[in-house]
């Protein structure tokens, strides 16, 4: 379970995330939506331990991400929007490292690896250096690394960017299966059709504030538009000037590039 309690994050005079409180329960797929610079990436960075909240608490599986960060991270799998892999390791060596970090036994690793190799069709390139991978291959390997240790919580940032239609299908099915098996999925995305298709609940953040939290039908009711698509509802809800990007978030909604 993911629990956020009055979480705020301040960048100088800019409030990137303001009093964010939400709870994502076990087995739920939660889609986190918002325009560029809304605070999505900042929220995710706080959840995975890359940023500390200025105030408030975030708990993953009952563990505080600041005070009990290792325990929280051991229960979490994170798929970033731009996967950063070790160029000079092969896919298999990278997965082995991640498995070792999580303390997987050789038996568990073999079992997980076999399963994920089948799901993500990794076999063809698993023994090549990751520097030779395309974006799609890197993304699939990042998924495999995030789910290798069977996390109870998965945090996925823009999972469909750069993937071909077959891989998109594959990822959607995989996430559904994981949720059905009890994994909590927190997914940030700009692909509204994916959110519409997959999410049990939706959260819409804009200029650091959570504007809406609920199901798609609840959103339709709130906007009094029963036949509207999520895209129409989202645009209406977030109508107005786009927020300026916060330091942790580039205008494209990606994490800041390092020189």
């Amino acid at each position: 379970m993911i629990e956020m309690d009055c979480v705020s994050r301040v960048f100088g005079p800019t409030v990137a995330v303001r009093d964010l409180s939400l709870r994502v329960v076990q087995g739920e797929i939660f889609a986190f939506l918002g325009p560029n610079g809304a605070g999505k990436t900042t929220t995710i960075k706080m959840m995975v331990g890359l940023l500390s909240p200025s105030s408030g608490n975030i708990c993953l599986g009952g563990f505080d991400v600041v005070r009990q960060s290792r325990q929280a991270k051991a229960r979490m799998g994170y798929v970033p929007d731009q996967p950063q892999l070790y160029d000079k390791l092969s896919g298999r060596e990278f997965l082995q490292f991640v498995a070792d970090v999580h303390g997987l036994s050789p038996g568990d690793l073999q079992e997980s690896l076999g399963r994920l190799m089948r799901v993500f069709d990794l076999g063809r390139f698993l023994d090549q250096l990751t520097e030779s991978y395309s974006h799609g291959m890197k993304q699939r390997l990042a998924f495999a690394a995030a789910f290798l240790h069977r996390p109870s919580i998965a945090i996925v940032d823009e999972p469909m960017v750069g993937l071909d239609p077959r891989s998109v299908r594959l990822v959607k099915d995989f996430l559904r299966d994981q949720a059905a098996a009890g994994t909590t999925i927190f997914m940030s995305t700009h692909t509204l059709s994916v959110a519409e298709e997959m999410a049990d609940r939706i959260g819409v953040i804009h200029q650091g504030r959570l504007l809406f939290l609920g199901t798609l039908n609840e959103l339709r009711q709130r906007m009094s538009q029963n036949d509207s698509s999520l895209e129409q509802l989202f645009l209406q809800l977030t109508d107005g000037d786009e927020a300026a990007p916060t330091p942790g978030e580039s205008p494209a909604g990606k994490s800041r590039e390092t020189p």
């Binding site: 970090v101 303390g103 996390p151 009890g182």
Partner: peptide, 21 residues
């Protein structure tokens, strides 16, 4: 269907971490 397991593995000790890196 793939079963997700709740993670209750012990965390790495200092020496295990050192060896790993």
């Amino acid at each position: 269907m793939i079963a997700a397991a709740s993670n209750e593995r012990p965390l790495l000790t200092h020496s295990q971490e050192s060896r790993l890196f």
